[in-house]
Amino acid sequence: MSISRRKFLGWVGAAGLSTVWSGPASAATTKHFEGYPDSLGVLFDNLLCIGCRTCEEACNKVNELPPPEQSFKDLSVLDQKRRTTAKTYTIVNRYNSSKGPMFRKIQCNHCLEPACASACFVSAFKKTKEGAVTYDASVCVGCRYCMIACPFEIPAYEYDKVLEPRIMKCTMCYPRVIKGLLPGCVEICPTEALSFGKRKDLIRMARDRIHRYPDRYVDHIYGEHEMGGTNWLYLSGVPYTEVDMREDLGVTPASELTAGALSSVPMIVGLWPVLLTGIYAINKRSDKIAKHERELAVDQAEKAASEEAAKSKAKEDS
């Protein structure tokens, strides 16, 4: 018994499949994943944002990004509909909402189930346990599928670089956060429109604000469930669509959207050869039978002909 067992384990090892057993177990049998329990995040409250652009400036500085085309002091750019680019990880736009001018800060939302990570065919994106979604330029091929996949349209590409173009996006200041520092934008914000902390604490904090000021806030924490949830959360005084945030993204995590298609791969691998070989074998067999019948028919015809000939010969003889 023990020998055969050892043998079996040997085969398993040889096939490189020992990971099946020694690998990590799923957190719950129902396959529902809550994300890293103590992951960090940021809560943005647009009722507190004054559109000063100092977060843009701080972001530019701590991430050593190229100098901006227009000075960070110039607030006229707020009315343009800007987005993140290869040179700016975060931007603030102003919208004329039903409650007057309202600001929106845009940067990577650091999804709990990142679409970019699910889409990347070299696993360049990682969801860290701290909450940040990081990017490793040293393996990036530059296919830009992450940009197709991202529902928030965050990753930008260095199209003008010839040799080493990279995807550029907010890192939630991961290098700073693991040193115990605050993200650049959060640290500089003069009005506490940005709060940094554990995601679960931020959600409690946001709920509390909504509870205390039900007239001021929309009863929805953006990012709690969007696309499976994000580590960057939002509170708003006006419906999110008024500040150009999409409310039609749904709550399905990106990795689930492609899971069905990917799961059909092993089914094709397992069954197509069986089906196709079967069809081949059926055709070969019917060919064989047809050939056999043809030979039989020829034989019979020959036999009949020779019998006929023999008969007629016999007749002639008699």
Partner: peptide, 25 residues
């Protein structure tokens, strides 16, 4: 180790699937 994200879970299962495909064929 425990899987905290669906992504990690899929990464694990898909990787094994791809490894299995070769001997299966």
């Amino acid at each position: 180790n425990v899987f905290y994200t669906l992504h990690d879970f899929f990464f694990h299962t898909e990787s094994i699937t791809y490894l299995l495909i070769v001997p299966v064929l």
